[in-house]
């Protein structure tokens, strides 16, 4: 009876547990990873360049409120993206994901992933 438990039931249960873990990790396990994303932001800058005085007295001197100038700038911010465990396996083995001081996962690259293992 003990042999049946040790060599039949117990490995059978472990096989089921292993398959369930493999299924969960492959399909349902997602982890948030901070990734640097560049976004374009349009900002409005008042034009404070010195006004040219009118050439003749009597002309309208200061025509109104200053001109507003729009400028597009690139802003880098960290965004949390959910990454699946299989993708994390590939990323982590090339040193593409590390744990920061706040115990959050952070990507070490932006753009193309490194191809060589850091070890």
């Amino acid at each position: 009876m003990w042999t049946l438990v040790r060599r039949g039931i117990l490995p059978g249960l472990l096989i089921i547990v292993g398959l369930a873990s493999l299924n969960y990790g492959s399909r349902f396990h997602f982890v948030p990873v901070l990734t640097e994303q560049k976004t374009e932001v349009t900002i409005e800058i008042p034009d404070i360049s010195p006004q040219i005085p009118p050439p003749f007295p009597g002309d309208q001197q200061f025509g109104g409120p200053p001109q507003i100038r729009k400028q597009t700038v690139q802003k880098t911010e960290e965004v949390a993206i959910n990454i699946s465990e299989p993708d994390l396996v590939r990323d982590v083995t090339v040193g593409g994901v590390v744990l920061n001081k706040s115990h959050e996962l952070k990507r070490t690259y932006s753009g193309k992933a490194p191809s060589l293992c850091p070890t």
Binding site: L14, I15, L22, N23, G25, E85, V89, L99, L105
Partner: peptide
Amino acid sequence: IGVLANFSAIHLIPFAALGTLIFLGAA
């Protein structure tokens, strides 16, 4: 082993890798 070690470094459990080892080890 690389997966286990790297996931240990980022304090995560690699369910897929562990599941593979448990399934094949038990069989």
